[in-house]
Amino acid sequence: MALQHTRSRSFPCGSQGAAIVKVDESLLSESTPSSLSSLADRIKGLQNLYESIDDLLLLPHIQRSIANECPQKCLDEMMEGYIMLLDACAAAKDVVSVAKRDAQELLSGVRRRMHAEAASTYLSSRRKLRKMVQKASFLRKKQNLGKGYEMRPVEKLLMDAKSATLGMISSLFFYMMGTKAHSCGSLVAKIMESKRVEETEFTKVDAALMSFMHNGDDGVKFADVLKSMECSIQIVEEGLECLFRSLIKTRVVLLNILSY
């Protein structure tokens, strides 16, 4: 279950309270995902979360509360936060798109028996991917959410959704770089400094490629490994595109509330 619902007395509507969505702890986890499939599930959970947030933001009493009672600092953080989320999601889409293209080109090279050229291009692109991750601006920004004011349920929900989304994208970058996730410190520093490589689909392909090139392993088996990773990347890429559209929609809803 990606979502939970509770009753809140903070936003009364007649004699009944509003159903407030809570972010499931699994979406807030900073642990390294076990597979691209688990990442895709996490992205789907975030899509469901933002759909529920949109439904909540359509309630008139919730809209009035945000527009009239939410501290200005909180409003500023929320709107700035959605710009950051869109930038982060766009960066993730770019990185995943490059990774998918690399897998496709390497697979094509293996099938055409252009092993050395394809391998060189793939490994060079992996280094470029690492640089793309290092340049992702959102990874360098400190998150000081909710400092200086008390957040109510809807405000906390929006801030938690932001943290969950940034956490997922950070986990995606960790996973693609084969770097173990850390609960503190900047992602950029950890990726640069980490000596430990976690086993992921990407590191498995890296290892299989080295074995294939140096030991003459079965090309058909290696092609199957590549094809499987390409399909998994495709699912993640489609999920990120849907999440990006969800973020735009939620931000538009918030802008409409604040301009009402």
Rank of each mutant, 00 (worst) to 15 (best):
C89G: 00
D87I: 12
M84N: 10
E77S: 14
M79N: 11
A91V: 02
A67M: 02
V95Q: 03
N68H: 10
I83E: 10
A91P: 01
I83Y: 11
A88G: 05
C70L: 13
L75V: 11
C74A: 13
P71N: 00
V95F: 08
K93N: 05
E77H: 10
A91I: 01
Q72L: 06
P71I: 00
C89S: 10
A88L: 02
C74W: 04
E77Y: 07
E80K: 12
S97G: 15
K93A: 04
R64G: 03
N68Q: 11
A67G: 02
C70S: 10
Q72N: 09
V96M: 05
L85W: 08
A67I: 01
E69L: 03
M84K: 14
V95C: 07
A90F: 02
E69Q: 04
G81D: 14
D87G: 12
K93Y: 01
L86E: 07
L86R: 12
Y82D: 08
A67C: 02
N68C: 08
I62C: 14
I66P: 02
A91C: 07
D87K: 09
Q63S: 15
M79E: 14
D94Y: 05
Y82R: 09
G81R: 04
L86K: 13
L75M: 10
Q63K: 13
N68G: 04
I83Q: 08
L85F: 06
I66E: 00
M79C: 11
A92R: 00
D94K: 15
C89Q: 07
L85A: 09
L86G: 01
C89N: 12
Q72W: 08
I62S: 05
L86D: 04
I62W: 06
A90K: 12
E77M: 11
A92E: 07
I66K: 02
G81T: 12
Q63F: 14
V96P: 09
K73L: 13
M79K: 07
R64I: 03
Q63G: 14
E69R: 06
G81A: 10
M78S: 04
L86S: 05
N68Y: 14
L85G: 07
E77T: 15
G81C: 09
L75H: 09
M78R: 04
K93C: 08
A91Q: 08
I66W: 00
S65R: 07
Y82S: 11
M79H: 06
Q63W: 15
K93G: 07
Y82I: 06
